[in-house]
Computed example of a mutant assay.
Amino acid sequence: MTVWKPHVTVAAVVERANRFLMVEETAEGRRVLNQPAGHLEPGESLLEAMVRETREETGWEVEGLALVGIYRWPPHPNHSKTFLRVTFAARALSHNPHQALDKGILGTHWLTRDELTAAVEWLRSPLVLQSATDYLAGRRYPLELFRDLE
């Protein structure tokens, strides 16, 4: 019997002055743009994972505001994994410019929706633009949807 399990990831849509916080990183040997994002680690909630990943990848402390969406990205020719991505809207609180960023992070940028659209070939996945689009369309769901049971 084959055991299948999706890769659970989290991401943050952080908007400030009509610009989105983006990470420039190296993934699978190429430079890409992504929202601050990463894998859920054992023992943390989805919200905690989003806050941690944003801090580790950008140096920004953020506060989760709402759920933007839950996205399934199935396998295709460029990858053989299924990803289940939980994307949060988050507010930037403070920045630590001395924070060492995760390995593979080349820098951070604040980009407009138009700049993201113009750079579509540089986006790490279709999840990036879809998350920004959903955020701009006003898709927000309360954080109370999440329940962590002990």
Rank of each mutant, 00 (worst) to 15 (best):
M1V: 07
T2Y: 11
H7S: 13
V10G: 06
V10N: 10
V10Y: 07
V13E: 03
V13W: 04
V14N: 03
R16M: 12
R16K: 15
N18I: 00
M22R: 13
E24A: 13
E25G: 08
E25R: 02
T26M: 12
A27W: 11
E28Q: 12
E28Y: 10
G29E: 04
R30T: 13
P36Q: 03
G38L: 06
H39F: 12
E41A: 14
G43S: 04
G43R: 09
E44F: 03
E44Q: 15
S45E: 07
E48A: 15
E48G: 15
E48Y: 07
V51W: 00
R52I: 06
E53S: 02
T54K: 08
T54H: 05
T54F: 02
R55L: 13
E57S: 00
E57Y: 00
T58F: 01
G59T: 02
G59F: 01
G64D: 01
A66Y: 05
I70C: 08
I70W: 09
Y71G: 02
R72H: 12
R72I: 14
W73F: 05
P74F: 00
P74V: 00
P75M: 06
P75N: 06
H76L: 10
H76Q: 11
P77I: 08
P77G: 09
S80K: 11
S80I: 07
T82Q: 06
F83C: 01
L84H: 05
R85N: 14
V86I: 13
V86R: 00
F88N: 02
A89G: 11
A89V: 08
A90M: 10
A90F: 02
R91S: 06
H95T: 01
N96R: 02
L101S: 01
G104M: 07
I105T: 10
L106T: 06
T108Y: 03
T108G: 05
H109Q: 13
W110Y: 12
R113I: 02
L116I: 08
A118V: 08
V120C: 03
V120L: 06
E121V: 03
E121S: 12
W122N: 07
W122L: 15
L123I: 05
L123D: 04
L123Y: 03
L123V: 08
P126V: 13
L127A: 12
V128M: 05
Q130L: 10
Q130H: 12
A132L: 08
D134C: 10
G138V: 03
R140S: 06
Y141K: 07
Y141N: 10
E144Y: 11
E144A: 15
L145I: 13
F146W: 13
D148N: 12
D148P: 00
E150D: 08
